[in-house]
């Protein structure tokens, strides 16, 4: 099963390699990984998407807790959470397809961020399934290059009573 883990860790050289090394050394799978500084510059937040049986995920979480630089691990699957991913797609855009590309991007609430004689580079943000959908639709037109950020996720704020 897919799990989205949110890991707070000390923002220090080598901290990230302890996390990734833990996964590779134990043959746990990383599907995507996204990491950046939090509001506290001494702390980074890492969103990690992994897939595995419950026992494996439980072991991975325990092992993450054990790392000295890790402050907190949250398995977002146990909560309500929002997730977003961003993709940059360079898609073929010649005279015949330009209008079509713009229409599609508009539907997905994306925008064009770079233009050349025969291509558009577009930016789309959304859940993993939305990203997949836009890629599938643009594919027949001709995708030249694609860059995805991987998922970032945040637990939803508790609902007020």
């Amino acid at each position: 099963m897919k799990h989205t883990l949110s890991v707070l860790l000390r923002n220090k050289p080598g901290a990230l390699s302890h996390v990734t090394g833990l996964f590779s050394g134990r043959c746990f799978n990383i599907e995507s990984l996204c990491v950046a500084e939090t509001i506290d510059p001494e702390v980074s937040c890492l969103t990690l998407v992994t897939r595995g049986k419950e026992g494996v995920i439980e072991q991975a979480i325990k092992q993450l807790h054990k790392l000295i630089d890790v402050i907190k691990v949250t398995d977002l699957n146990e909560k309500d959470f929002v997730e977003r991913e961003m993709v940059l797609i360079r898609v073929k855009a010649d005279a015949s397809s330009r209008a079509e590309v713009l229409r599609i991007i508009d539907i997905f609430r994306g925008k064009v961020v770079d233009v050349s004689a025969n291509s558009y580079t577009v930016e789309v943000t959304g859940s993993e399934s939305k990203i997949k959908a836009v890629i599938d639709i643009l594919k027949p037109i001709g995708i030249k290059e694609i860059i995805r950020t991987g998922t970032v996720a945040m637990a939803r704020a508790p609902k007020s009573k």
């Binding site: 050289p13 080598g14 390699s17 302890h18 090394g21 833990l22 000295i68």
Partner: peptide, 15 residues
């Protein structure tokens, strides 16, 4: 530090 990462409890490079 890279080599011993998986076989130490923790390791440091003092910068």
């Amino acid at each position: 530090v890279g080599i011993t990462r998986p076989c130490t409890k923790h390791n440091y490079l003092v910068n």
